[in-house]
Structure formats: structure tokens, C-alpha cells
């Protein structure tokens, strides 16, 4: 066996990438359709489906909170990991800047969504 092998910390990012990839593959298209097309334009679903009281109640329910948090955070960790690797693919190699932009923005967005969701109360 080769000596001086260093364990990679990739499993953390890879697991988040996989989780987000799976969640977005399962419900991503339907979510885009619901929030971006169906409800705003009253197709299939009534416009009132995303009214302030309804969405507030949804975000105050712990299950709703968990769903919103999982979607925003995992989608972003998925995208961050993929974009980071794509940068490597096109010749921009794993620098600190690439890491900060990709994973840093996912991290900040995770904190912001957690902060807002907790602020909305239960």
C-alpha cells in the first residue's frame, strides 16, 4: 500500500451533493411548476394557494419548515458541489476562491434560511 495517503473529506460534500441531487430529481420539476408557473398564473392551482396566511402557516409547521429548509439547503449544496467540480473540469482547479464561492454561498444560504425559518416561530 502507498504510504502518506491522506483521507479525503469529500464524503461530507458528496453526501450533501447526493441528497440534494436526489431530492431535486424527485420533486424539483414539480416544485418549479407549482411555485413558478401554476400558482402565479392560476393554472391547475388557485392563486391563493401561496397567500401570506397560508405560507406563514406552512412555514410555522415543523414539517413545512423542514421541507423548505431541506429544499433550499440541499439544492444549493448539490449545485455547489457540481459547480465546484465543473470549474475543475474546465481547468479552474480547486483553489480557495472556487471553494469559497461554491460551498461558501451554500453555507451562507443555509444559515440565512435556518435563521428566517426559526424567526417565523412555531
Amino acid at each position: 500500500m502507498k504510504s502518506g495517503l491522506k483521507r479525503s473529506n469529500a464524503p461530507i460534500f458528496w453526501a450533501l451533493f447526493g441528497g440534494g441531487g436526489m431530492l431535486s430529481a424527485l420533486v424539483g420539476p414539480m416544485l418549479v411548476f407549482i411555485t413558478g408557473i401554476a400558482i402565479p398564473f392560476g393554472l391547475l392551482l388557485p392563486e391563493g394557494a401561496m397567500s401570506y396566511p397560508k405560507m406563514l402557516a406552512f412555514a410555522q409547521n415543523w414539517l413545512g419548515k423542514a421541507f423548505v429548509f431541506a429544499v433550499i439547503a440541499l439544492f444549493l449544496w448539490h449545485a455547489a458541489h457540481r459547480i465546484f467540480h465543473t470549474l475543475h473540469d474546465v481547468g479552474i482547479h480547486a483553489g480557495v476562491a472556487a471553494r469559497l464561492i461554491c460551498y461558501g454561498s451554500a453555507f451562507v444560504a443555509t444559515l440565512v434560511s435556518a435563521y428566517v425559518l426559526l424567526g417565523l416561530g412555531f
Binding site: 495517503l5 483521507r7 458528496w14
Partner: peptide, 16 residues
């Protein structure tokens, strides 16, 4: 024993 290489920076996580 082989896990050391699998999990290393030279290992499987280079694969996309």
C-alpha cells in the same frame, strides 16, 4: 486495508 486508498485524496472521490 484497501479502504485507506479508496478513501484517500487519490481515491474514488475524484470520480464525477
Amino acid at each position: 486495508e484497501r479502504m485507506e486508498l479508496v478513501a484517500a485524496e487519490e481515491g474514488v472521490f475524484n470520480c464525477t
